[in-house]
Simulated assay, not measured.
Amino acid sequence: MAKEFNVPPVVFPSGGNPGPTSATQRRPTAPFQPPRSSNTIPFVSFDVGSATSSTSAAPFPTLSSTTIASSTFDDEPPLLEELGINTKQIWSKTYSILNPFRVNPDLHEDGDLSGPFLFLIAFGLFQLLAGKIHFGIILGWVTVAAIYLYVVFNMLAGRNGSLDLYRCLSMIGYCMLPMVILSAISLFLPQGGVVIFALAALFVIWSTRVCTRLLIEVARWDEHRGLVGYACFLIYMLFSLLVIF
């Protein structure tokens, strides 16, 4: 027979909820939030909803990468122009050298060393492909040749000469273009043959004619053309010997 237990009656408070009275009841608070009381500092609490609404009402100005790049680099010149390298001028001077019968001396009034340096490096690279390391010899010979031709020309012209060393070096370097072409062709020809000698003579005459005309026209001195041409012939003959031997 089951035993009966006497259960005391449960009495609920007047609020209708079991537990402590409403006067002593504490409401749960959100995590990381200080309890709200009369001593709470007003500006310490942070309301996420109000911050979101204020941000959406007055958004911050945004700058795209295109705007920043355009505002930063629009006023700056190209890099080659800052370095003093004019590709259009180099191409115009090179094109004028390719035709020995129609050389334009006006293009060589303003000397530059970017084109000649490019031709000298190309000449050295073709010599390197042929198994000859001549970079130091090429740069040294060009420097000595420019000083030699500058002294000879000004001694012949006297006070009538108006050739400076910078333009002289520029014209000698640009007239090295036939030597560069000869160095490239010599890679496919046997060394010491009759063909390479004939081509070398042809390209030496080409460089000599162009360089002589440029010196005479740019310096505006038309006397002793043969002596100036002989000095140019000696310079380019030395470079052709590097290719042949």
Rank of each mutant, 00 (worst) to 15 (best):
F126R: 03
T66S: 15
L163K: 09
R209H: 14
G115I: 01
R159D: 15
S53W: 04
F101A: 08
G158V: 01
N17P: 00
L63R: 05
K93C: 07
R36L: 05
F203P: 05
G115E: 03
S37M: 04
G173T: 01
G229Y: 01
S56D: 11
L242W: 02
L199A: 09
N154A: 00
I85T: 13
T55V: 08
P31K: 13
L128N: 12
D110N: 06
I181A: 15
Q127P: 00
P9G: 04
D222S: 13
K88H: 11
A231P: 00
E223A: 04
G16H: 08
P18H: 12
I138V: 12
C232R: 07
G15R: 07
A57E: 02
N104G: 01
R213I: 07
L83N: 03
T143E: 15
P78Q: 07
L83A: 12
L165W: 13
G15H: 15
P105W: 04
S71F: 01
P61F: 05
I97R: 01
F60C: 03
F12K: 12
S162H: 15
P34H: 06
I147D: 06
F197Q: 14
L227R: 12
L79E: 03
K132L: 06
D112W: 02
M1D: 05
N160V: 01
D110F: 11
S38D: 07
N6R: 09
V44S: 14
Q33C: 02
R26V: 11
Y148M: 08
Y230E: 11
F73M: 05
F5Q: 12
V210S: 08
G140W: 12
W91T: 14
F60L: 12
F119W: 08
A130R: 13
P34N: 10
A122W: 03
G49N: 06
K93T: 01
F233I: 07
V44T: 11
S186E: 02
K3E: 15
I138C: 09
A198K: 04
C175G: 13
I137E: 15
F117M: 08
T21V: 00
Y148P: 00
I196M: 11
I41L: 14
S186Y: 02
I133F: 06
K88S: 15
D47K: 00
L169H: 07
V228D: 02
L165N: 08
S183H: 04
L165C: 08
V48W: 07
I181W: 03
M1T: 06
Y230T: 15
S114K: 02
L120A: 11
I85D: 05
I85M: 15
G229R: 11
